[in-house]
């Protein structure tokens, strides 16, 4: 129990296989509040599967996850999201056929206007909240540096801006834990810098982050702890310095 209080997220020996392919094997980890945990490992190591299990999109075969004192294993994805875990997807998901601003507005939690009856019987409350949210959304877009695109369809943004928007959506959800799946892969150095600086500012806002990334330099720069995984297992864990000198990782990444 004491452990649960101290740890913000406790993942206890998750197992998951897909038709005999082991994607997670006794995978455990912990993250403190306001920590940035980097998750590295080769393609197919099970990193995205870990996110999918954690967020309820895939049910694990066994294992437990405790988030801020509540068991979340087996809960539905939307419920877990409402408890304060937001994520991005490796294959970049957004609502492309609505405006950038509407993507942000969609992602705020606890909107009275999402209750159908409120739209009819408490319309003034709905409008008031919507107005507030619009202000917040514009501020978030300004922070991300894409406020000038607020009125464009999300689809009309560049790839980098779309990735930026997907992270800004997580900020709108005001989640306590953000799971970012390869947030800077495929981006130009300027955009990488911008996104990394947004991520590294999250802890001071009280947020915790788990970050999957192949860009070693980036992940070493902003994580306070790193887990290296392969074939569903945790191979090693430590501070960036410790992991950097781990021969197994040097072998995997620096050949």
């Amino acid at each position: 129990m004491r452990e649960n209080m101290a740890d913000f997220l406790t993942v206890d020996s998750l197992n998951k296989s897909f038709d005999g392919i082991v994607a997670l094997e006794n995978f455990s980890c912990k993250i403190k509040k306001k920590g940035i945990l980097g998750l590295i490992g080769p393609n197919g190591a099970g990193k995205s599967t870990f996110f999918n299990v954690l967020t309820g999109f895939i049910t694990c075969d066994s294992g437990k996850t405790n988030f801020m004192g509540t068991e979340i294993t087996g809960k539905s994805a939307d419920k877990i999201a409402r408890m304060g875990i937001s994520r991005t997807f490796q294959d970049l998901r957004l609502i492309r056929q609505i405006r950038v601003l509407d993507n942000i507005l969609l992602c705020f939690r606890d909107q009275p206007g999402e209750k159908l009856r409120n739209t009819f019987i408490k319309n003034s409350l709905v409008r008031k909240k919507e107005k507030e949210n619009k202000k917040k959304a514009v501020a978030l877009l300004e922070y991300a540096g894409i406020a000038d695109k607020a009125g464009s369809l999300a689809n009309d943004l560049s790839y980098g801006q779309q990735k930026l928007l997907s992270i800004t959506c997580c900020l709108a959800a005001d989640a306590d834990l953000l799971l970012l799946d390869e947030p800077v892969s495929g981006l130009n150095p300027v955009m990488i810098e911008k996104i990394l600086s947004i991520i590294s500012e999250l802890p001071e806002k009280g947020k915790s982050v788990i970050l999957i990334e192949h860009n070693m330099e980036a992940i070493m720069q902003i994580s306070d702890r790193i887990i290296f995984m392969d074939t569903g297992k945790k191979i090693s864990e430590g501070t960036p310095q410790e992991v950097r000198s781990d021969p197994r990782i040097i072998e995997a990444y620096l050949d």
Partner: peptide, 25 residues
């Protein structure tokens, strides 16, 4: 035109995304 309707459009475009932001599809 309401936030409820915005969620409907999100469901139309990408249920997984909508769900990942807490919407009960």
């Amino acid at each position: 035109k309401s936030p409820f309707g915005r969620v409907l459009k999100a469901i139309r475009e990408d249920e997984v995304f909508a769900q990942s932001f807490g919407k009960n599809i």
